[in-house]
């Protein structure tokens, strides 16, 4: 908790500067609303905001879970067969070069205004970092430990489960954290391009009626959701990798 203090101070400073700028500069609220104005507007519209946050959260976590599970399965194949790695990795890298701003409207045209286009976009941006984190994690396996497993006569599956997968966990969680920050934005993108519900379409509607205050309120909610999911991965990591926290995050075996 104490580590959050510097970040909080900086955050409050930035908000304060913004507030002062708006008040002293007599900027119109429809151009750049002050933080206090945004907070008030968001609070007044809280029912609608909340009703649009839930679908975004749902699409994000669902798409993210799907992507993570399939990333794990694919990483298994890649780790088992070098052929799979050579076949899949280029395609994965190309998937990251697709401009999501342009892609989002297309996916909506193809799959409609429901959940599907959101899931696809989230999966598209999160699948890659998680897969790469896993595959690179496996490859950091201690060669001595691998030789030890072979000398004992351990099979592929036992070696994977008891050596390679635990080795990859720290890298996996790093990938997970990177992916989760993309995931919420991807959902919002999909919704912005067209959707029945969600923070993205909420922003779209607010912008079209010149409610910059409500746009910014929705942006704040988006950030809060991302931050919450980010912290959640930290909590899970602590549970899953207790041997790391035992030594203050140092990742050392023995000499």
């Amino acid at each position: 908790m104490r580590r959050a203090i510097p970040a909080t101070i900086l955050f409050l400073l930035l908000l304060g500067t913004w507030q002062l700028y708006c008040t002293l500069g007599h900027i119109g609220n429809d151009v750049l609303p002050s933080p206090s104005h945004v907070a008030r507007a968001g609070w007044d519209d809280r029912g609608d905001l909340w009703a649009n946050t839930l679908p975004t959260l749902l699409a994000t976590t669902l798409g993210f879970t799907l992507a993570t599970v399939s990333a794990f399965l694919l990483s298994l194949l890649i780790d088992r067969w070098n052929f799979a790695r050579q076949a899949v990795m280029p395609a994965l890298i190309v998937s990251q070069t697709l401009p999501i701003v342009v892609l989002a409207p297309l996916v909506v045209i193809w799959f409609g205004f429901g959940l599907t286009p959101k899931l696809i976009l989230v999966a598209l941006v999160t699948f890659f970092p998680v897969t790469v984190a896993l595959v690179e994690g496996y490859s950091t396996t201690d060669p001595d430990a691998a030789a030890l497993f072979r000398s004992i006569g351990a099979g592929w599956w036992a070696t994977f489960r008891k050596l390679r997968l635990p080795t990859a966990l720290p890298s996996f969680f790093t990938g997970l954290r990177i992916a989760i920050t993309y995931a919420v934005v991807a959902t919002v993108f999909a919704e912005y391009a067209g959707s029945e519900k969600g923070l993205g379409i909420y922003m779209q509607v607010a912008k079209n009626s010149f409610r910059t205050d409500l746009v910014l309120a929705a942006v704040a909610v988006t950030s809060a959701v991302t931050l919450a999911l980010f912290l959640l991965t930290h909590l899970i990591e602590r549970r899953v990798i207790p041997w790391r926290t035992a030594t203050d995050g140092r990742w050392e075996g023995t000499k």
Binding site: D142, D144, I152, A154, K162, L169, K255
Partner: peptide, 23 residues
């Protein structure tokens, strides 16, 4: 092995029994 190759995610006892478990 020369490095000992203990697994950081296994307790001392679980490291000691690794060979047996894998067999």
């Amino acid at each position: 092995p020369q490095s000992g190759a203990l697994l950081p995610w296994r307790s001392a006892l679980d490291n000691a029994t690794l060979g047996l478990e894998l067999s």
